[in-house]
Structures are given as structure tokens and as C-alpha cells.
């Protein structure tokens, strides 16, 4: 019952976020700050995780390819498409749901508890728009860039593991990378990354904005931002796969 009520409140709240800004320059400054926080702040963790995922993907497929009739250069093709279609975007988004989702929920929830949001409301600020829109814009711009970085680093990790651990040659891997390339897969990746960015940010900001109670409730809201964000990302992943790949 609470889940349905929360969903209704979330849907009813979304139009407030897209209200006309009171002062464009203030929103612009805040968006740039958020872009920096999300982009630079998450770059290292995204690169580390995607590098390892690419390497593991490469090693696991090389293990599965053993003793089969599948040509060895397929390793590059498999790692590339795994990273583009699924691994880079979904794993990066789930990691970001944990990292920036919890931060956003805690930041806005803290402002709610310290009466900062009430203070802004009294000044006449549309707090839903001012606190959420810059984060949302920053996310839908920066997260796809992070996903592209994750994809490149992941393929790099896969290449490194294939050459050094799995015993493939560089030429085999690169041949695979250049084979069967479908540009539409890049579109799938970008559609997913923009959708997931919206989910991560809006769910986290919703949890923070409507928090009540004290520090325990704030912690719970932060946890809910990560849990709900991750679950909704996976549901959206399935739906996008069904729609775009069918």
C-alpha cells in the first residue's frame, strides 16, 4: 500500500521539477557544480569497476570458448558487445545508484531536516525545481559520458586480460572488435544510460525530499534510494531490451 502511495506521490511530484526556473544563472551554476561532482567524483570508481568487469568477461568467455568450434577472434566481438549493450551501462548505473544516489538523498534529506528547504520555500523558491532539476540535467548529460568511458575502459580491460592471461593474440582480439559491429547497439547503450540517469537521480531526490523524522530515517531514505534505484534500473533494463531488441 505504501509503495503505491509513494509511486503516486513520486509521479505527482515530477512536474514540479520541470517548472520554469526563477533565475536561469543560479540553475546553470548549480548544474555545472553537479556535473563536476557526478563526473569527476565518479570517474575513478567507474573506470576501476569497468576495467575489471571487461577483464573478467574476457577470461570467462575464453574459458567457455575452449574446445569449441567458435573462432578465437570472437573474443573481441563478445567483449565489445557485452560492454556496449549491457555491462558498461547497467553496472555503471548500479554503481552510480549507490554512489551518487545515496549522496543526493542524504544531501536533500539533510536540507529538509535542517529546515533549509522550508527556508527556501518561504523565500519563494520552487525547491523541487531548484534542488532537483540541476541534478537531473547534470546526470542525464554526465552519466552517458561515464558509460562511454566505462565501455572503452571495459574493452581495454578485456583486451589486456585476453592478451596477458587468456593467451589470445592482439590481432585476434582487434579482428573480433572490428567484426559484426551494429551501430544500433550504441543507441541502445545511450538510451539505457539516459533512462538510468533519470531513474537514479529522480528516485534519490524523491527519497531525500520527502524524508521525515531524524537521522535514522535519513539513513533509511538513503538506503531506499539505492535499493529502489537499483531495482528500477534492472526493470527498465529488461523493458528497454524487450522494446529495442525485439
Amino acid at each position: 500500500m505504501k509503495l503505491i502511495r509513494d509511486f503516486g506521490q513520486y509521479v505527482a511530484w515530477l512536474p514540479d521539477i520541470f517548472s520554469r526556473p526563477e533565475n536561469m544563472s543560479m540553475y546553470y551554476k548549480e548544474t555545472i557544480r553537479q556535473m563536476y561532482d557526478i563526473g569527476i567524483g565518479s570517474l575513478s570508481i567507474v573506470m576501476i569497476i569497468s576495467g575489471f568487469i571487461g577483464a573478467v568477461t574476457s577470461i570467462q568467455f575464453s574459458y567457455q570458448l575452449e574446445g569449441t568450434m567458435i573462432p578465437s577472434y570472437y573474443i573481441g566481438y563478445i567483449v565489445r558487445d557485452m560492454m556496449i549493450i549491457e555491462m558498461a551501462v547497467t553496472l555503471t548505473s548500479i554503481v552510480l545508484a549507490g554512489k551518487i544516489g545515496s549522496t543526493m538523498a542524504a544531501e536533500i534529506g539533510g536540507m529538509r531536516q535542517k529546515e533549509h528547504i522550508d527556508a527556501m520555500e518561504i523565500m519563494g523558491v520552487n525547491t523541487s525545481a531548484y534542488l532537483v532539476m540541476p541534478k537531473l540535467l547534470a546526470s542525464v548529460v554526465i552519466i552517458p559520458i561515464l558509460v562511454i568511458v566505462a565501455c572503452i575502459v571495459g574493452i581495454g580491460g578485456g583486451y589486456f586480460a585476453a592478451i596477458t592471461v587468456a593467451g589470445f593474440t592482439s590481432a585476434e582480439f582487434i579482428r573480433g572488435l572490428r567484426s559484426f559491429f551494429v551501430p544500433f547497439n550504441i543507441l541502445i547503450m545511450l538510451v539505457k544510460s539516459v533512462t538510468f540517469a533519470f531513474i537514479i537521480t529522480s528516485v534519490a531526490c524523491y527519497q531525500g525530499y520527502f524524508v521525515t523524522g531524524g537521522s535514522i530515517e535519513l539513513g533509511q531514505a538513503s538506503t531506499r534510494a539505492v535499493v529502489f534505484g537499483s531495482i528500477i534500473i534492472l526493470i527498465a533494463d529488461l523493458l528497454i531490451a524487450l522494446i529495442l531488441m525485439s
Partner: peptide, 26 residues
Amino acid sequence: GMLFQGNALFDSMTVEENIRFPMDMF
């Protein structure tokens, strides 16, 4: 204008930025 019980000053802003905020916004 409203003065809150806990002041509700924005922690990440200086005194000057806090006072300037409504002017910046409106």
C-alpha cells in the same frame, strides 16, 4: 522574511552568500 528556530543557514555558504541568496535568486 522568516527567521527559523535553528536559523536554517546554508552550511556550505558563507555569511555573505547566505544573505545574498534571495537577491541572487529573485
